[in-house]
């Protein structure tokens, strides 16, 4: 399937990197890494924009196209190099280190990236390593949902195959929730512009509810057929369904980018 490297780079920058926030919140190891750093690191690529990681007292914020200058950062002359880095291949971006004592921040980023890859790059292994810990499962499902909906935004804005989305998707809010206090994430759609959000949203136009965390996990691992789950009521869709139809097409496309072997 023909994929656009610039879109993949956007997914890496704006859907995957921001998951470091959840990682640092959840994972002790990541938190320890983050606590060694104070200040900001920016990743940017030509024509794509930037994300800035801001470390403060052991916590992390990720800001898109923050403006101003970060303490340090990595600049990629094109999407291919950025994608190589995220694929774990050898890729040397251009570091911009304004002050030599900021160089260690890049090492922090590298360590966090490795930890993120260990958790989300192979979630099955991550869960197994945790001893099938339900909290780890919840974290992984939550991260995958956030990644998916953040990814939808990039795809519908930049992937040619989804150029129809903005014209043919009605305004509304789309909520995905895992029943029983499970993870929730949502999308605002206004005039074809998509804005992802974490957590619940009031009065969603469309709701996709997954019966429980285990079903959500199996779905996200591709072991349960979504339509089969719908038929057996493991998934319920209510509200204005055309929004869900369109978002689902975008989510399928996301799979092509982030799980190209699937």
């Amino acid at each position: 399937m023909k994929l656009n490297p610039a879109v993949l780079a956007r997914l890496n920058l704006f859907a995957v990197v921001p998951r470091m926030v959840e990682l640092v919140e959840f994972d002790q190891q990541a938190r320890s890494i983050a606590s060694t750093c104070s200040g900001s690191i920016e990743l940017s690529a030509r024509g794509l924009g930037s994300v800035r990681l801001v470390f403060r007292n052991g916590s992390l914020d990720v800001i898109r196209d923050a403006g101003g200058s970060a303490d340090t950062g990595l600049w990629f002359p094109g999407p291919e190099l950025l994608n190589k880095l995220f694929a774990g291949e050898k890729a040397i971006p251009v570091p911009y280190v304004w002050k030599p004592w900021n160089l260690p921040k890049l090492v922090v980023f590298q360590k966090l990236a490795e930890r993120l890859d260990a958790m989300l790059g192979d979630p099955e292994k991550a869960l197994a390593d945790s001893g099938d810990d339900p909290k780890t499962k919840e974290f992984l499902v939550r991260c995958m949902l956030y990644t998916a909906l953040a990814g939808v935004k990039e795809l519908v804005e930049y992937d040619e195959k989804l150029a129809w989305f903005s014209k043919s998707t009605p305004d509304g809010t789309f909520l995905i929730q895992v029943a029983g206090d499970g993870p929730q994430a949502h999308l605002f759609i206004r005039n074809g512009v998509v804005t992802p959000g974490k957590g619940p949203v009031a009065n969603p136009s469309t709701t996709l509810e997954i019966k429980n965390l285990d079903i959500a996990w199996e779905l996200l691992q591709g072991r349960i057929d979504a339509m089969g789950a719908l038929g057996s009521c493991d998934i319920r869709m209510t509200g204005f369904l055309p929004i869900a139809d369109n978002v689902n097409v975008a989510m399928d496309r996301l799979g092509a980018y982030l799980q190209p072997s699937a």
């Binding site: 057929d225 339509m227 089969g228 719908l230 038929g231 057996s232 009521c233 319920r236 209510t238 369904l241």
Partner: peptide
């Protein structure tokens, strides 16, 4: 769903009603 794409496709898909 194991042998037919979407199990039932088109306008009679369960997804377009209220499954269950």
């Amino acid at each position: 769903v194991k042998v037919i794409p979407n199990g039932i496709y088109g306008h009679t898909s369960p997804a377009l009603t209220v499954p269950g």
